[in-house]
Structure formats: C-alpha cells, structure tokens
Design a binder for these strands. Structure first.
Length: 633
RNA sequence: GGUUGUGUAGCUCAACUGGAUAGAGCAUCUGACUACGAAUCAGAAGGUUUAAGGUUCGACUCCUUACACGACCA
C-alpha cells in the first residue's frame, strides 16, 4: 500500500533511495567571480606556495594546500595544516610551520602575525584586510546571485499532496524544505520552477467520494463550515471507520482476515468507483471534480498561510496516460517485458535493484507509471538540468527505480533527477499514526504557534504603537518563523523529533532569536538615522578592529560559501546555521562595543555600517528559509 | 531474510567531508539592564562519539564485525 493512512512522509504522494542519486558535478562553465574572502584565501595559498618554494625549494601547488579557518581558541584566522607536508619537505611539522610563518610575516603584508601549535600554522590577517573584505560585502548589490557554476535550469517538485485529506506536520517539513531549496538554488542564479504534482486520482480519493455518497447528505464546506480539505478528510475517516466495521463483521462470520479486507463491500465499491472513474463515468467524474475542487480551495488557503508558492501544478490524472505510453515505448524497445498475465515489468537486477511492476495485468497504472509521464512533461516544459523531488525517505527505493527506468528508456533527462530524501517527523509520543489520532494537523499547528507567539510578544510588551494589522502580521511572522526554523535547522536526511513545546520557544537556537536580532539592528539603525548617521559611511579611517568586529565580518563573509554548499547538498540546515551564527556574532558585538554611543565618529559610522550589513545578511538568509524578519517585535 | 539509513552531553541538534582540547541550544548553577532593545550577553558544569577490531603522523568521519532503532523490498 502506498500513501495509505499510516504513512506520514509528508509528500502525500507518499512514495522512496538516494545515495546514488547525486547532484550533477560542479563544473564551472565560465570563470567564477571571486568574492573578497575567496580572493584573500587564494592569495594566501599562493603566498604559502611561494614560501615553500623559497624556503624549502619544493614545488607544492597552491590548490593542494589545506588552508582552513582557525579554531576560535587560537589566535589567527587561517590555518595551514603542516602534517601532510612533512614527507615532501623532509622536515618536522613544527619546523615547517615556524619557517613558513617567518617567511610570510617578512614578505606578505596581509599577514600581521602567526603562531605555531604542533602541526598547525595559524596566520593572523591584518585588520585592514578585513575592512576590505567588509567593504566588498556591502558593495554587493542586493539579491546578487552567488555564482557557483551549478545547474542553470531547475525544477523543484515539492508538497505533492494526496487530495483525500488535509496537510499535516510531515507535509510541513516537505513544504518548507521544498520552498527553501528552491530559493537557495535561485540564489545561485539558477532559473527555478517550483512544481506541485497533485495526486488527485486513485483509490484514496475514491474512498472519500464513496463515503460522501453514503453519508454526506449533500454537505458542502459552506454548509458545514469546514475547510474543503478537512471535509474530504472527514469522509476519508468515515470510510475507514465503516470499512473496518465490515471487515470485523466478516471475520466474525469466519472469513479469513486477508480475504475479509479484500471482500468488504465498501472496498469493492471503492474499486468499482475507481474503474468507473477511469472509464470516464459522468456521475463519478463530476463528484470527483466537485470534491477535489473543495480540497484545492483548502490547500490554497493553507499554502498561502504558510507562505509557500508554486509556479506550476501537475495533476496525476493528466500525466498517467503519458506514462502508459512510455511503458508501451519500453516494451517496443525491448527494455521492459510482459508476463503471462499481461502485466508489464522491468528487470533492474543489473542495477542492483529488483524486478519492478510498471503496469498491472488489468492495464491500470501504478505510481511509477505516471512518474514517467510527469518527468517527461517537466523536461518538455522547462528543459531542466536538475530535477529535484522532495519526497520522504520511505520512497528511496521508488525514486531509484524511477531513475533507472528512465535510463533504460534512454531519456536524456534521467541523470538530472535527484531525490531530496528527508526523514520522517516523530512526536515525543512516537510516530504519528492516524489510527491513534496522533496526527498533527498543519492548519491547527500553525494556529497554535501563532497564538504562542502572540502570548510571548504581549508578555514582553515592546510593541506599543503598532496597529492591529501590524500586530497580526507580526504574530504570524514570529509563529511561522519559529516553526519553519525548527523544522529546517535539522539536516533533511535525518529523521527528526517534533517537540511542540520547543517549537514555539524563542530563546537560543530559534527563529525568533534571529528575528529579534534583526529587530534590534533595525532599532539601532533608526536611532542612528535620527542622529544623521547613515549606513553607507566611508571606512577609510578604520585601521584596527575589535575582536567581536573581526569575528562578525568573518561570519558575514561566509555567505557565499554557505549558499554554494547548501545548493550543492540541498540543505537549508546550513543556511539556518549561518543565520544563527551571524545573529550570535552580532549580539556579542552589540554587548561589547558601543555603536551609536561611540564618541569617535569614524568608528561610529563603521559600526552602524556593520550593523546595517548584518541586518541585510539576516534578512536574506532567513528569506532563503522562507522566514520574514520584523523591524520591531 | 535482502537492501538501505541512522546511532555524538540528561534532551534536541552541529562538527568545513581525514585535522588541534568533539561544538551550540534547552534544562541546571553563577554573574551582567542609569550606553544604543535582557526574546540578549558573560561564565560554570555536563562526553570512552553504541561496542570491538583495522587503516595512518592523526578517525565522530574511511574499512571489517557485532548491537540498537527506522524505512523499503518480498
């Protein structure tokens, strides 16, 4: 059973393996623009390479030098690990570090000091260099893409709900991930299409329809005062309830359990209905349209409320026929085969997989059938060089099969397919199970986090002067900020625990902490502006930095590397970590040095500029997560 | 049974892909609001990285084997 009531991956299309499905290689098509820190790093490597040449007469290319960020407990900002050089240079690690450090200090003006600890050469970079890095950062136009040489045309498919029940917590992880990954890829300059493949056909929706026919009495979302997706869900639950009663009754009459499940009248009726639907039965199709229409209205409201969007909708009902054509094509090409009962299979044993059913004996399609059609349509429409599928890890196997099947068919877009496989969301009480009523409804959860944000904000009492509308917007921003950050800060591939109490926390490693930092910066900037200090002052007089200023600049400078890596591995968690690190570095800076209270005008202007740049960085990086940041809170 | 993922502080998560004394947050304890927002900051305590082997200058990371939990395939 796929996509049954017990699975909560989120992608309601509920489907599966991804170690083999890799991001296309990052081959720069054109020379990449280097950003200030990268320039600094490169020139340091070159200088080190030259130093090795001069001091030891050995040739070690700059690219091979393992230069890394210095750990916080040591002086310096860049560290060369000298262990790997000992063989080539015939000296001990400390000796090498000492000699190279001395040479650089004498010949490389950017290096202002060094220290050697065992096999580590820590280089201290002149403050003027960091000021230059900062200047480079603030000169960047807002929204300028990070050039990575990665994919140019991308489709990100996410959400992909079943139309028989409303969205739940698992879908939220899916939706936030999909939206965020799409935004991150956009930030690398890719043209990204957000796609939603709606699973609008199949036995699941027939169950809702059937229950509605039996028990609905003409109810509508308007008459019942229930959101359309919840109404469909209500009838799905009713179906399950009555169906189980029938099964139990049959079992009591002595029918074997597995037979009872298949022979229960409601199940037979649902299957009849599915066949009628495929045959185009007018009454069935009309009911189907009506109920799906209700569901879409409900989904739209939820999507809007949680701030995700789509550029393109696909409907399984419109792609499965094309999929069937591809199955036929495979048969003709001889890469698929037909069993005696008429069912169509593909043999993937050579690929390390198994035999896989592509079309049932009665000619009806299975999940993978329509996937073949959808992949082709997406390629026709958008010519992608990367096609991301945000689907829970329970579908790993299916996604591997999909790719392998497309490869068998010789489709040029097969290799561009990438499964962004994410782990399930568990509750403190264990797995979400519909039968036990432990499923966390998305709409209700959002209401709760917003209410929690409101309560917390009222308690702090810092929002006087804001209008009702502004307050409503703020609570929503904060509640969703907490929820999104909570779900996105964890590595997607890991199964995660959702603790409702922690998800609305606003201290520590949380969305509101970062939003607060932004609000605080905004406050500083407002006050600075009142005193005539803008964010764009000249930095020429700055020659020395405070430790917290240097640390902050270093954090800010990581942006390009973070976005590049986050796009490569498709992990918003890296961006979340970045935003948190920046906020923390700023708060430390804020606590230790005066900004507008600084007497020295040059320093004051610099610190205001630093604050402004930090605010921008927070806003952009949180934006990549789909989280807004307030001016006040 | 086969394939596969995960296992790190009491709890939730990191660790730049093989580098230094494994880092954050929560919870616990201590300190800081008459300088700009305390939803903050500073500090303390908390670890045999599931276990045992192996590879090497160096292992949370790579390779065996075992254990635990999850997912998928029959």
């Amino acid at each position: 059973m796929q996509g049954g009531p017990g699975s909560f991956g989120g992608g309601g299309r509920c489907r599966g393996r991804s170690a083999l499905l890799r991001f296309p290689p990052l081959v720069p098509q054109r020379p990449l623009r280097l950003y200030p820190v990268q320039q600094l790093e490169q020139s340091l490597k070159s200088a080190l390479s030259a130093a090795i040449q001069h001091v030891f007469g050995a040739d070690v290319p700059a690219a091979q030098l393992p230069l890394q960020a210095t750990r916080k407990d040591f002086a310096g900002q860049f560290t060369l690990v000298t262990f790997p050089l000992t063989k080539a240079l015939g000296k001990g690690p400390e000796q090498i570090g000492q000699a190279l450090g001395e040479y650089l200090l004498a010949h490389e003006p950017r290096v202002s000091g060094f220290n050697v600890v065992k096999g580590f050469l820590n280089l201290e970079i002149a403050d003027s260099e960091w000021v230059r890095v900062f200047e480079g950062l603030r000169q960047r136009p807002a929204g300028a893409p990070v050039a990575t040489g990665g994919p140019q045309r991308v489709v990100v498919e996410y959400s992909s709900p079943n139309t028989n029940k409303p969205l739940h917590l698992g879908h939220l992880r899916n939706n936030f991930l999909g939206y965020s990954v799409a935004e991150i890829l956009k930030a690398t300059g890719a043209e990204v299409t957000k796609a939603n493949l709606v699973n609008d056909r199949g036995i699941h929706i027939c169950k809702s329809m059937l229950a509605y026919q039996h028990y609905g009495q003409g109810e509508t979302p308007q008459s019942a005062g229930i959101k359309g997706d919840h109404l469909a869900g209500k009838y799905y639950v009713l179906f399950e309830k009555h169906y189980r009663e029938q099964v139990r009754q049959l079992e009591n009459e002595g029918v074997a359990p597995d037979v009872a499940k298949k022979k229960a009248p409601l199940m037979l009726e649902a299957q009849d209905m599915l066949r009628a639907w495929e045959a185009g039965d007018e009454a069935v199709v009309s009911l189907w349209k009506k109920m799906n229409g209700w569901v879409y209205e409900g989904f739209d409201a939820t999507y809007q409320n949680i701030g995700v969007d789509f550029d393109k909708f696909y409907y399984e009902s419109q792609t499965y026929l094309l999929g069937k054509e591809r199955v036929e094509e495979g048969l003709q090409k001889g890469v698929f085969f037909k069993k005696d009962d008429g069912s169509v299979w593909v043999d993937l044993k050579e690929e390390g997989l198994d035999e896989k059913l592509l079309l049932r004996a009665d000619g009806t399609s299975v999940y993978i059938t329509q996937d073949l059609g959808t992949a082709e349509l997406k390629f026709e429409h958008f010519g992608y060089d990367l096609s991301v599928y945000v689907i829970a890890d329970e579908q790993n196997y299916h996604m591997q099969v999909l790719r392998a099947v497309l490869q068998k068919l010789g489709k040029p877009y097969a290799d561009a397919i990438h499964h962004l496989s994410y782990g399930m969301v568990d509750l403190p009480s264990g797995k979400m199970k519909s039968r036990e009523g432990t499923v966390v409804d998305a709409d209700e959860l959002v209401r709760e986090v917003v209410a929690a944000a409101e309560a917390a904000t009222l308690e702090k009492g810092k929002t006087e002067g804001l209008s009702e509308d502004e307050l409503t917007r703020l609570y929503h921003m904060l509640g969703l900020g907490a929820l999104k950050y909570y779900l996105l800060k964890v590595d997607p591939k890991k199964r995660m625990l959702f603790n409702p109490e922690e998800s609305v926390k606003l201290e520590g490693d949380t969305g509101p902490f970062i939003q607060y930092s932004h609000a605080r910066i905004s406050s500083i900037l407002r006050k600075a502006a009142e005193r005539g200090v803008g964010p764009d002052g000249q930095l020429t007089g700055i020659t020395e930095l405070q430790g917290t200023e240097r640390d902050l600049i270093q954090e800010l400078a990581r942006y390009d590397a973070v976005v590049t890596e986050a796009a490569r591995v498709q992990s918003p968690a890296l961006v979340a970590q970045f935003a948190y690190d920046v906020a923390r570095a700023y708060n430390r800076f804020f606590a230790e040095v005066p900004i507008i209270a600084e007497a020295d005008e040059i320093k004051r202007a610099f610190r205001v500029a630093l604050s402004a740049q930090t605010g921008r960085a927070l806003k952009t990086s949180m934006g990549l997560l789909g989280i807004e940041v307030p001016e006040r809170m």
